[in-house]
Amino acid sequence: MKKTMQWLAVLAAAILMLAAFGCSTKPAPVSETTPAPEQPTAAPAEPTPEPAQDTTVTVVDMVGHTVTLEKPAERIVALTASDCEIIYALGAGDLLVGRGEWCDYPAEVFNVTSVESGGNTNIEQILALDPDVLVMSTMAQTEEQVKQLEDAGVAVVVNDAKDIAGVYTSIEILGKLLGKDAEAAAIIDGMKTAFAEIEANKLDGTKTVYFEVSPLEWGLWTAGAGTFMNEVAEMVGLKNCFADLEGWAQISEEQVIERNPDYIVTITMYLGEGPKPEEEIMARPGWEDVTAVKNAAILNLPNNELSRPIPRLADGAKMLFDFVMEIEEALALEPAA
């Protein structure tokens, strides 16, 4: 695998160099309506003049693959929801010409052409959008597909943040690609400040939290170690009561009752009918004695604040922190039983 990757990287670099020497830059901005060519445009007859200053952008993506662009990307396709969101956060939403079908934040993203993603990734759909860069996560796409894209002159960048530090890296990479380095730095600073503020006031780590990723009706799933939720819990000073599990895991309802969390965070979206997610948890038979249920210490974060590698992780962490502080204050006021 590693070998192939290296080989791919070399190949990609070779193609890029060829493109740089042979093709020069792409012809001036392509209008939205121009049908995209199947193949990258061949070298124009007269060579374009050398750019006045060096606008070359080089990034190393999160699989160690070096990508060089002549100038910051002007047309970008992002397959994952988190990358779309970062692009909007960078103020570069107008450069996004295509998005993966599951991208849903912010609402403007729905105006962008949707393409199939993941296992269904359709190269023709992507090429039809004539992007400079495609951003995706680790290899849900096949190596052949990556090669096809690169052959067609589309730079492929892999973003796959596994932790908050990784989120910073992916913001940096996208900032660089889109010529928004300053914006990227500002977002990262903002996140770091928010996290630092939370860490400065964190709890002592004796209280526990249970993250509910999927509700009881569909089978309980939680987030264990190695997830953003776990990292945020540590930051707030809560102990994830399923930290003994790795990643997302389906768990037994009995286990939640036994582990008796002090806090519950559910990310179930309220669909506007029936009980709200936190009310549904409160009403579950057998959960009456769970501390979080007794204290109504259940927080609903339904907009992926804590489940995606995005700038909003800071908002999610802040919401959790504020909620916990509020409950803790209320509990402190009550006379101890």
């Binding site: 999927s214 009881l216 009706e217 089978g219 669909l271 579950r284």
Partner: peptide, 23 residues
């Protein structure tokens, strides 16, 4: 599932099925 986007989540989970939370 493609067209009923706001219900996506419950539908995708639904197809897996679960006897957890059986009453």
């Amino acid at each position: 599932i493609t067209f009923a986007s706001e219900h996506i989540k419950s539908i995708t989970f639904w197809t897996m099925g679960s006897l957890q939370g059986a009453s």
